[in-house]
Design a protein around this nucleic acid. Structure first.
Lengths: 138, 138
DNA sequence: TAAATTACTTGCAACTTGCAAGTAATTTTA
DNA sequence: TAAAATTACTTGCAAGTTGCAAGTAATTTA
């Protein structure tokens, strides 16, 4: 007799499989909050990701359903990386992490207006950030 | 002339330094939500952390101010790992991550009542979970 | 048509992880 | 009270992952 409960993996465990490495969250940050869309733009983030690591992460993120790879029809060398809803729904996670870091690390800063709005009207801020990201990529 | 703005590190970057590896968040989950307090208990989590990795992570977590190591005066072999406020303030991050995983991975499950309360009265749930964790370790 | 640009891939050394075995300080058991 | 068990680790080494430098294929620009 099979168990009626097949769902038994820990949610933290699943999240770590998808973005629990040194780079995936930074790439998501750049795509979601900095408006980057191209490989060359992602290469310029100040954390200095290596080109082979970026390539392998983008491939894994596509496999995991976080991004979609689209060729630019006007310049066929270029690839756009578009975010899926699954990725956009990590915005609250990024904001919650940011709130924590700003409290506990004196060398860390986030745009104060962003943090103020996250405290005062989180739902509206999240909706706006998602819309902004969606608009950028259409 | 030095810049007036010395705070310039990205909050995501700081968080990744502290818990952006494969194991730290799982150890925090076990200490915060499963009520584990001892090395031997942490060794039994189903993800199967290696003993040397657990030891090195606990050391780093102490350095980073997430846990405090306390010897049991009644059995001097035993060590209690206690959570700091800095660690307890990651509860919202863990809950936000869990919400995302439950939505996007069909094999993932979290206690439904927990998720319901996180949607309906997040502040109270967070306060309760923090209190429960604090109570366990005193 | 040669140079530049874009998005990668390849090769290799250095670092990190995972597994198995071992150890020191206690506490329990026979 | 001596031997066995328990607890919290450490050590050694093989296997996997990351980081750096260089190279490449397909375009587009000068």
């Amino acid at each position: 007799m099979p168990s009626s409960k097949l769902n038994n993996k820990c949610p933290i465990d699943y999240a770590l499989e998808v973005f629990g490495d040194r780079w995936t969250l930074l790439v998501l940050r750049d795509l979601m909050l900095s408006g980057k869309r191209h490989y060359r733009e992602l290469m310029t983030s100040k954390e200095g990701i290596a080109t082979n690591i970026l390539a392998s992460r983008l491939q894994k993120m596509e496999t995991d359903g976080l991004i979609i790879r689209k060729q630019n029809s006007e310049d066929k060398r270029q690839i756009f990386y578009e975010l899926t809803e699954k990725a956009l729904d990590l915005i609250p996670v990024l904001l919650e992490i940011s709130r924590w870091s700003v409290i506990y690390d004196k060398d860390t800063a986030a745009p104060p207006e962003l943090m103020r709005r996250f405290n005062e009207e989180p739902q509206q801020l999240i909706a706006e950030l998602k819309d902004a990201a969606r608009t950028r990529q259409t």
